[in-house]
């Protein structure tokens, strides 16, 4: 592997919901502590090489979006480090984020809420670069035109407001805004999840084009395995805040090792699978407020043994696994 562009080292994010005033008084008087801690992301270690696209996949509550926001610096890690070529993505002053890098840019899921409805497209796209003096104020308009053309929009639309565009076009604008900052890393959080299927294909094709032209490095977050398989070089499968399997895309989809990865792949409805072809994982996703002990997947896992509810498996390569996997099956049995 070439030198890592992004390195995530043992990063974790905990959200603490403070107890209500009444509960705090009760606690001071000897009652139980009602502070709740959500372990959104726990001990994630991951690198993204220059020019590589890494997919983050998982179901709700798995922490993929939180991790995306940690990478773009919006959330400061509770512990661990996230750095871009050695420089932390967020400069901290104590516990507060002081300054964010411009080198990581983000594309949000919902293009209807990620664009300021009262700002013309030209201002939306040029605001960041002009402020950070990546382009001069005089050159901003040409730059906007270039960016819009690059994402497949007509440059003459730049005087319009977001509501004058369709969902797919808005997502193109959001991508243009991110690209205008000349980022070294793009974080795409479910960029096609809210689009119609036919529009989804257009935006995915745009991403593939841009990747080819600009050699983009990206973290692509999605719940849709088909989408991730299509655009990513490597895939990290997340479950309840942890990466449970990390491998190159092709071997991962060919022979998934972790029982959760297998279950996830089986659950995806497939075109032409034939009537009645369902295979479902039993059980529900546990609450990240109160994750199961040991391996978080053990209550739903068909292979779970006594060891799984006690000892947490570590992410490592096993015999004939496509990459690294956190499962006792490949580490001396359950």
């Amino acid at each position: 592997m070439t030198k890592a562009m992004l390195s995530i080292d043992n990063a974790a994010k905990r959200f603490v919901t403070p107890a209500s005033m009444g509960d705090r008084i009760a606690h001071a008087l000897g009652g139980p502590d009602r502070t709740q801690t959500v372990h959104a992301v726990t001990d994630v270690t991951l690198t993204v090489a220059k020019g590589e696209v890494v997919g983050l996949v998982g179901e709700s509550g798995c922490g993929k979006s939180t991790l995306g926001r940690m990478i773009s610096g919006i959330y400061a890690p509770s512990s661990g480090a996230i750095a871009l070529e050695g420089t932390p993505v967020a400069k901290m002053a104590g516990k507060r984020i002081q300054k964010l890098t411009t080198r990581v840019q983000m594309v949000h899921q919902d293009p209807f809420s990620s664009l300021d409805p009262r700002m013309r497209v030209a201002n939306t796209v040029s605001e960041g670069p002009v402020h950070h003096q990546l382009v001069s104020a005089a050159g901003a308009d040409d730059n906007v035109a270039d960016m819009l053309v690059r994402v497949g929009l007509d440059a003459s639309t730049r005087r319009r407001f977001p509501h004058q565009f369709s969902g797919g076009q808005r997502q193109r604008i959001a991508i243009a805004r991110a690209l205008a900052m000349q980022p070294d890393l793009l974080v795409l959080d479910e960029p096609v999840a809210s689009l119609d299927v036919s529009i989804q294909a257009q935006v995915l094709n745009l991403f593939l084009d841009l990747r080819q032209q600009l050699g983009l490095t990206a973290v692509f977050i999605s719940h849709d395995l088909g989408v991730v398989r299509h655009v990513s070089d490597r895939v990290a499968i997340m479950y309840l805040g942890r990466v449970v399997e990390l491998a190159d895309t092709v071997p991962l989809f060919d022979r998934p090792a972790h029982p959760y990865t297998r279950a996830l792949l089986d659950s995806v409805p497939k075109l032409g699978a034939g009537r009645g072809a369902f295979s479902a994982v039993a059980g529900e996703i546990p609450s990240p407020l109160n994750p199961p002990p040991g391996c978080a997947f053990h209550p739903r896992c068909p292979f779970a043994g006594p060891r799984c509810s006690v000892e947490r498996p570590i992410l490592k390569a096993g015999d004939n696994t496509p990459g690294t996997v956190a499962c006792h099956l490949y580490d001396g049995g359950t």
């Binding site: 369709s166 797919g168 076009q169 119609d196 299927v197 036919s198 529009i199 989804q200 294909a201 257009q202 995915l204 094709n205 593939l208 084009d209 849709d224 395995l225 088909g226 989408v227 398989r229 299509h230 655009v231 895309t249 092709v250 995806v268 497939k270 075109l271």
Partner: peptide
């Protein structure tokens, strides 16, 4: 519509897309 589903396409290749919007 069927062709634009990513899992129908070869990985990394351009998806068949329906031009324009609804």
């Amino acid at each position: 519509l069927m062709a634009s589903v990513p899992s129908q396409a070869e990985r990394g290749q351009k998806l068949v897309q329906i031009k324009g919007s609804t």
